[in-house]
Design a protein around this nucleic acid. Structure first.
Lengths: 248, 248
DNA sequence: CAGTGGTCTAGACCACTGG
DNA sequence: CAGTGGTCTAGACCACTGC
């Protein structure tokens, strides 16, 4: 459905066709017409569907691929990005070993409870006053050494039936689980980092002294349509690992 | 100079035309045919020069713009990115105030000396055994409150005549100065973050206790052709500010 | 108004994948 | 070998900037 956008169009903003196509593709992703890991229709078909040229569809898809929402595979097709892929798995874990070697991450769920979240968390998740949240506590180990303590809050409205058992039994990443069980894909996150002193509980879990400096990471994750859907607080031991970030 | 790349070309790797054009543009940037802030030739002209279509030039320029090496301005032309631009200035300072307000950054140069760098720094800068480096120490204040202590190493070969006086007298960012005075543009950096306890000297400069947890940032910066050209160690006070990072 | 980048099209052909 | 995304071209027209 191309609009005209000629000079006779008096609307103040100009929106290129490919942006409109991108929005339509985004809507299809949001409403689940194509789910994580699915093959989306080929470019020629999308071009027919939207009544535009293949080049225009291509530009829209290119942008969605650049944003890691779609994955192009030459010769095969274009797929909806999924947290099951190993490449994507590490997009949301920035830790590297100081010596550059790989390490095995293991997660131990400590606790799962449905509570009224702290005010700051409530605000970040854009919840109403009395909305509940699932609070997950976990301990991450790198090569069997305690490395990270995390507190995670999720809106109960979406993640209603999370239990410690279900979580413990799932093999894979949390985001993989959210995607598989709740059809919620995290596509973007903002992290705020600080150096803090360990709290007694965290120090104990990480098996370090109570004055150990820790990297404290506050994460707010978003799904489609910029909807905030997870708050995560992480206390990272940075004795043998570091948080790596590239400025481009 | 398009190559043929037909099936009669037995070379094992296929390099699209636009990638070759991109390399040529990169070479022109490296050798200083166009310098920071310069307007580069219009697309039609580049297309003529390289004997390809405008669309092919466009794709090459698009990629360089995506990498922040070039800046496109509709109706005006395409410019070489420069650290003088305010937008780019903040690409290499990730700190935000906790309350979201803006703050004024002031830099005080503490010391400048030409030394043999520590082994780790030497390796990162890919220097030979006896190569010297300039070591700059500075204190950054946010809104007139001490916030960051930095130690910076630069290859003396390039930054031969850096002195405390020259540095102190320059108004603007360090990268702006490197660009203006030495024609060296930082285009990419990798940062490793850790939580540490302040050293006595750093604690004194930041006016905090000797056990204050600090965010320690190790940065390696690169110029064109992936040449490492700066090592920077920063101790950040994160009481009122945090390091912000977006995962996309 | 001239010049620049930005959009859109139509079509040809290539590279890659899987069956 | 058919089908997919990837490259490249040529050309038309639009939006934006500065003069």
């Amino acid at each position: 459905m191309p609009n005209s956008n000629t000079h006779t169009d008096s609307s103040p903003v100009f929106s290129p066709l490919y942006q409109q196509i991108k929005s339509l593709l985004l809507q299809s992703l949001e409403k689940g017409e194509w789910n994580a890991g699915d093959l989306i229709p080929p470019e020629v078909e999308l071009a027919k569907r939207y009544n535009v040229s293949q080049g225009t569809v291509r530009k829209a898809v290119d942008e969605l691929a650049a944003e890691n929402l779609l994955v192009r595979r030459q010769g095969r097709g274009t797929f909806v990005a999924t947290h099951q892929e190993s490449k994507i798995r590490f997009r949301f874990l920035s830790m590297k070993a100081d010596d550059g070697t790989d390490f095995k991450t293991r997660s131990t769920i400590l606790d799962v409870k449905h509570t009224t979240p702290p005010e700051a968390v409530r605000a970040h998740l854009e919840l109403n006053k009395k909305d509940a949240a699932v609070q997950i506590s976990r301990l991450l180990s790198f090569d069997n050494t305690p490395a990270v303590v995390e507190e995670i809050w999720l809106p109960s409205q979406i993640f209603a039936d999370v239990t410690l058992d279900k979580l413990t039994n799932y093999k894979g990443t949390l985001y993989g689980w959210f995607e598989a069980e709740y059809n919620v894909r995290m596509i973007r996150a903002v992290e705020n980092l600080r150096a803090v002193v360990a709290t007694p509980q965290v120090a104990q879990l990480l098996e370090v002294s109570a004055v150990e400096p820790l990297l404290f990471v506050e994460r707010l994750s978003y799904t489609y349509a910029d909807k905030p859907v997870e708050v995560r607080h992480g206390w990272y031991l940075t004795a043998a690992h570091h948080y790596q970030n590239e400025l481009i």
